[in-house]
Design a protein around this nucleic acid. Structure first.
Length: 565
DNA sequence: GCCGTTTTCGGCCCGACTGTTTTCAGTCG
């Protein structure tokens, strides 16, 4: 049995909290599990180091939980979770993903006979939900809509999840030249399957993955083995070296691109499939994707640009080697600390950013309206500012900022004279998600046009696989950013990836973007990777990304931006 | 379940919104 990653420990603790909530246990007990999960998430060490010290000395993890975690690592079972989960139908926890449903409502639904998403959909349609105590026609309609969203989303994973699994596969397939394929290779924001390709045979793959991939089995008529890892669908496609190029192309997706390429090949008298490029009965030698394209007389299209949205524009976009990379990011701006709802101090966040090879950190804690996130009053903001200036004097490369709430009317949560003291300002929406499109648009346009706003944070508020954008004319907001010289955030958190890369692709060259992690924990700074993948799909070069500037250049940029307004 | 501590047990983030109620429970950020 493999050692569970720290991420799966976090997942197990969160799941325990969810189950306890639905069972109606002491809410503070479940909160303890949840805050222990947050605490583990924020650590830099992984499971072996934590096990070595018996999970001792971790904030919010006491003797009892430390013991449970040790047992979990050793046996793969979390006693508290198994005991609690045994009392629930297995499909019931999926209801937690439905917006508007919390533990209490889920319990009520369960008591009325609902035990799965499908059951809930049926109960909404039949009118049973609307008749339940505490529910009504409006909530039944909204629940139905959200259930459909979740049922659709259930087919997909966040990019971070898919990449974690796919990279674990790569590590377990040494000697077979393993490479990423499919959605994870193209860096799509959500993925259906964690897919890799190898040079070899089904036997080679099986020998290396037995015991790691569950239910590993051949896919009919394809050179592919499929299974699951932690419930995530995986596929490993294999081919001899001579046809590896065709395999990589065909397993590289998207479906749209693959089908178009097959059709073009057919027109030219070829047959292209995962088993190779054929002309008549002859299988052509195509060890690489480039070889296939050369035989077909077609230009090579980089994986980043293989979505339908790229069809008309990709030849005009920069070559992959010109696109922004993680190593181009010099500043990690829009980050949180213990001053608001982060788990690490400013000094620790800065040290971590430097360890990761970046040059400076920008603070960006929540403003006073964000009570739930321990948002900073003006007095606390100014105290934080003093701490930042002291750290700067001690040589820590920082810039001082804040993530300031955009209020309902589009004004900001701090007065201008306070904002002016900051080195930069990120303005974000965290409330009033349900305004109609016209008011929401006016609100964001007003904020984006504010003379002291540097960056518009996560512009649509979407949470991938959970909820879409609030109602909004996004192009009107982007136009306002272009007019005011306001930078648009590509929030790199794998659950947001907001603004969408398709929008960035469309507005590329007209507005500047910032790839921001919005990190609340030390490990969150590494999410920059996902934002970079989005920026690459949008065809962005370092010059189009604000935080590729040095600290001094960044400060100069903000000064010029303010002066121009 | 964790924490801080008056070292044994009480407190644990909180205001706004929604849809249901008929004064509020549940959810969200």
């Amino acid at each position: 049995m493999s050692v569970p990653s720290r991420k799966s420990l976090v997942g197990a603790l969160e799941r325990t909290a969810d189950v306890l909530d639905i069972l109606g246990e002491d809410e503070f007990r479940s909160k303890a599990y949840r805050s222990a999960a947050r605490s583990l998430e924020g650590l830099a060490e992984d499971t072996p180091e934590l096990l070595a010290r018996g999970f001792a000395g971790i904030p919010r993890v006491g003797k009892s939980l430390a013991g449970e975690l040790v047992a979990f690592v050793q046996t793969g079972r979390l006693a508290a979770l198994e005991e609690a989960a045994a009392q629930l139908p297995p499909g019931l926890l999926d209801l937690l993903n439905v917006r508007g449903l919390g533990p209490k409502k889920i319990r009520a639904l369960w008591e009325s006979g609902v035990d799965s998403l499908e059951g809930l959909r049926e109960a909404c349609v039949s009118g049973r939900v609307a008749g339940l105590k505490g529910f009504g026609a409006k909530s039944a309609a909204s629940i139905l809509e959200n259930v459909e969203f979740v049922l659709e989303a259930r087919q997909r994973q966040h990019l971070s999840t898919g990449l974690d699994v796919a990279e674990e596969l790569l590590a377990r397939l040494p000697g077979l030249e393993p490479r990423l394929a499919g959605d994870v290779r193209r860096g799509l924001e959500t993925v259906r399957t964690a897919r890799v390709t190898v040079t070899g045979t089904a036997q080679d793959v099986t020998a290396k993955l037995a015991g790691f991939v569950d239910d590993l089995a051949p896919v009919e008529k394809k050179p592919v083995l499929a299974g699951t890892v932690d419930g995530v669908p995986v596929e490993v496609a294999y081919a001899p070296a001579q046809v590896r190029g065709a395999l990589d192309l065909m397993m590289g997706g998207s479906t749209h691109y693959r089908e178009a390429l097959r059709a073009t090949a057919k027109e030219k008298g070829f047959d292209l499939s995962g088993r190779g490029l054929k002309r008549g009965e002859e299988v052509l030698s195509t060890p690489s994707e480039e070889d296939v394209m050369r035989e077909l007389g077609l230009p090579y299209r980089p994986p980043e640009y293989r979505e339908a949205e790229h069809d008309d524009v990709w030849p005009t976009l920069p070559a992959p080697q010109e696109l922004v990379r993680v190593s181009d990011l010099r500043g990690m701006i829009h980050t949180h600390s213990t001053w608001s709802d982060g788990t690490a101090s400013i000094a620790d966040m800065a040290a971590q950013a430097l360890r990761l090879g970046h040059e400076f950190l920008g603070t960006g804690d929540h403003s006073r309206a964000a009570h739930y996130a321990n948002g900073l009053s003006i007095e606390r903001l100014q105290a934080q500012l003093r701490e930042v200036r002291e750290l700067q004097a001690a040589g820590v490369p920082l810039v001082a900022g804040a993530e300031v709430d955009i209020l309902e009317d589009g004004t900001l949560d701090y007065p201008d004279d306070v904002l002016a003291e900051l080195d930069y300002v990120v303005a974000s929406v965290h409330s009033h998600f349900t305004l109609d499109s016209e008011r929401q648009t006016q609100r964001l346009v007003r904020a984006a046009s504010h003379p002291l706003v540097t960056v518009l944070g996560h512009p649509t508020g979407r949470l991938l696989l959970r909820r879409g954008s609030y109602a909004l004319d996004l192009d009107a907001v982007m136009a306002a950013c272009a007019a005011a010289g306001t930078v648009v955030e590509i929030n790199a958190n794998a659950y947001r990836l907001d603004v969408d890369w398709r929008v960035a692709l469309r507005w590329r060259g007209r507005v500047m973007f910032a790839i921001n992690t919005d990190a609340h924990v030390l490990g969150g700074l590494q999410d920059a990777r996902y934002g970079v993948l989005m920026a690459r799909k949008a065809g962005l070069t370092p010059a189009q990304v604000l935080n590729t500037l040095s600290r001094q250049e960044f400060l100069t940029f903000v000064q010029k931006q303010r002066a121009a307004r």
